[in-house]
């Protein structure tokens, strides 16, 4: 497609004792894609994402992220990616602004750039007047939006989102995905996991994970056509049934 792949995984595997969380997955993600990782809880999505972002080491297989090897250059990967974890990752006992300053600071943003980006971001989020409010007091949807905004504060070319819309109401979810699409439209790549089947439709390409393996991969249109289903929900149920879960 366009240039070198942003992510190239080959037979990537991670075991925890006898349990194989991720079983020889291979795929590529290209620049400017919104790549979806679809699967039930425990299918191995988060483990795969944590391997690609340098948080855990693979047991075997290879993966190159932004040209860096996940075994030897995980710190280089961390410099260039954004990551929003499934667990809420902002400090609840700090204000919105204090959180922004902290995360901006640990990514090495200088004071000028930081205040400029914080302003932009708070305007976009419509949180300008709440900047000195504790994060604890924000509703879940806003917290998640803020977490995403903080994850892209340093403008990473590649962002990992682990179930970004968990526990968020449908209206905010739609806003959220529009915002993600916006970021992708600026030429960035987003890798997102979800177990909401309707959200898969936002993705340019997606892979369906079942029991640690990739059961299907392609654009939503291709997948519907190939498996003869009407929506992702049906596809997912078919795949889960065929692999015996």
């Amino acid at each position: 497609m366009k240039g070198n792949p942003v992510i190239r995984a080959n037979d990537l595997t991670r075991r925890f004792g006898n349990f194989v969380a991720v079983d020889r997955i291979s795929f590529e993600v290209h620049p400017g894609e919104l790549f979806g990782f679809l699967g039930a809880n425990g299918a191995g999505k988060t483990t795969a994402m944590r391997m690609l972002s340098g948080l855990i080491r693979p047991t075997s297989g290879t993966a190159i992220v932004l040209g860096y090897d996940v075994y030897r250059q995980s710190e280089a990967i961390k410099r260039s990616i954004g990551y929003m974890s499934q667990r809420f990752s902002l400090y609840e006992d700090l204000t919105i602004m204090e959180n922004i300053r902290f995360y901006g600071g640990i990514y090495g943003l200088n004071a000028h750039l930081l205040s400029q980006r914080a302003d932009e971001m708070l305007t976009q989020l419509d949180l300008k007047h709440q900047r000195d409010q504790l994060v604890r007091s924000l509703p879940t949807g806003w917290r998640q939006k803020l977490a995403f905004a903080v994850a892209i504060l340093h403008r990473p070319r590649l962002v990992f989102l682990d179930e970004p819309t968990g526990g968020v109401d449908p209206i905010v979810r739609r806003e959220f995905w529009e915002w993600i699409l916006d970021y992708v439209a600026q030429g960035n790549t987003v890798f997102a996991t979800t177990h909401y089947m309707d959200e898969a439709e936002y993705c340019s390409r997606l892979s369906v994970m079942v029991n640690g393996r990739i059961a299907a991969i392609g654009s939503p249109l291709e997948l519907r056509g190939h498996f003869g289903v009407h929506d992702m929900e049906e596809l997912f149920l078919n795949l889960a049934a065929s692999t015996g879960t």
Binding site: E75, K78, R79, Y83, S85, R87, F88, S89, L90, Y107
Partner: peptide
């Protein structure tokens, strides 16, 4: 315990 350490671990902090 609260999980914020993961957000630091995935950052370039040495």
């Amino acid at each position: 315990e609260i999980g914020t350490i993961e957000q630091i671990n995935v950052s370039p902090v040495r």
